[in-house]
């Protein structure tokens, strides 16, 4: 972990993802406008921005779910086609903001589906069940179990995915994405809805993924999570990239604060009002506590 903080100062070691001038228009609405972003090998890059800033749209452009109106996305120097399964085959895997597991398949089966691009056995092989098919199935299962161990879900391999608790569904989605042996993992709000312990566990998991040599691009709203985790953070506001830099640079940028917290407006409650509200709250709390003891 410590070694990587030093390498993070020189991000352009070998570029894994290079998105240039990505623009996405839906009719008259420009959701993403001329965004450039690079992710280097072994790097964790964060993408933040207020709701509706175009983060997920940008993700969908990267993974071929949307065809960007303008701009190109390349992975390790090769321009990616606009087909979701080919992007995954090239080496970019993703998770979804609203978990999209295969809800009625088992945990193991979910991860095995993730192995799809890394195995070749077709229908004929499945029908003939030759030794090569069996070997490939066994290897897929071994790799899937390895990933389940890695994410701590091995004990739940035969559970149905929809029955997992929320945090484990998130983990399973990551395990499934990792099953395609990606060079870059895109995480869309991996800690949404998690409690602080789960968030910390996710943070460790992302570090462990990076340590295995997979670069990570992560969208998140939890600022503490992002600033702890990322080597570099890009801020997207209204479809444009506002700032990009180390967590320290981004945290200190006034435009970012304004974008997130908003600029003061007229008639905003002044300090007096705030003090009044606080006093009233303190009073009511004290009274309820008193009631409890009585």
């Amino acid at each position: 972990m410590t070694t990587d903080t030093t390498t993070s100062q020189a991000p352009a070691r070998d570029t894994v993802l290079d998105a240039t001038g990505v623009t996405m228009r839906f009719g008259g609405l420009t959701a993403v406008s001329d965004v450039d972003l690079t992710v280097g090998g072994g790097e964790i890059v964060g993408l933040i921005g207020p709701n509706g800033a175009g983060k997920t749209t940008f993700f969908n452009c990267l993974t071929g779910l949307y065809i960007p109106t303008e701009g190109t996305v390349s992975y390790r120097g090769k321009v990616l086609p606009h087909r979701s399964h080919l992007v995954t085959q090239a080496g970019i895997a993703r998770t979804f903001q609203n978990i999209r597991l295969f809800p009625n398949m088992t945990v193991l089966e979910n991860v095995l589906v993730g192995r799809h691009t890394r195995t070749k056995e077709g229908l004929v092989a499945a029908l003939l069940r030759g030794p090569r098919f069996k070997k490939a199935e066994r290897e897929s299962e071994d790799r899937a179990m390895e990933l389940l161990e890695f994410t701590g879900l091995a004990a739940k391999r035969d559970h149905i995915a929809r029955n997992l608790p929320y945090g484990e569904q998130r983990k399973l989605e990551i395990a499934r994405a990792l099953a395609s042996d990606p060079g870059l993992l895109l995480l869309d709000e991996p800690t949404a809805g998690m409690n602080p312990q789960e968030t910390r566990a996710t943070q460790d998991l992302v570090f462990a993924i990076r340590d295995q040599g997979t670069a990570v691009l992560v969208i998140e709203h939890d600022m503490r999570f992002i600033f702890n985790l990322c080597d570099r953070v890009a801020v997207l506001v209204q479809g444009r990239k506002l700032v990009e830099g180390t967590p320290a640079v981004v945290q200190g940028d006034e435009r970012v604060i304004a974008a997130y917290l908003g600029t003061p407006f007229e008639g905003e409650p002044g300090e007096e009002e705030l003090a009044e509200v606080e006093a009233a709250e303190a009073h009511s709390t004290a009274r309820t506590e008193g009631d409890d003891t009585a």
């Binding site: 993974t63 779910l65 979701s84 399964h85 995954t88 895997a93 993703r94 979804f96 999209r100 597991l101 295969f102 809800p103 009625n104 398949m105 089966e109 095995l112 589906v113 192995r115 799809h116 195995t119 056995e121 077709g122 229908l123 092989a125 499945a126 098919f133 490939a136 199935e137 897929s140």
Partner: peptide, 19 residues
């Protein structure tokens, strides 16, 4: 088999299966 799992995956969630 790999093919059957892919079929079920498509049935369950086609977008996720493509991804």
């Amino acid at each position: 088999s790999r093919i059957g799992r892919a079929w079920v995956a498509i049935r369950e969630d086609e977008t996720a299966a493509r991804a």
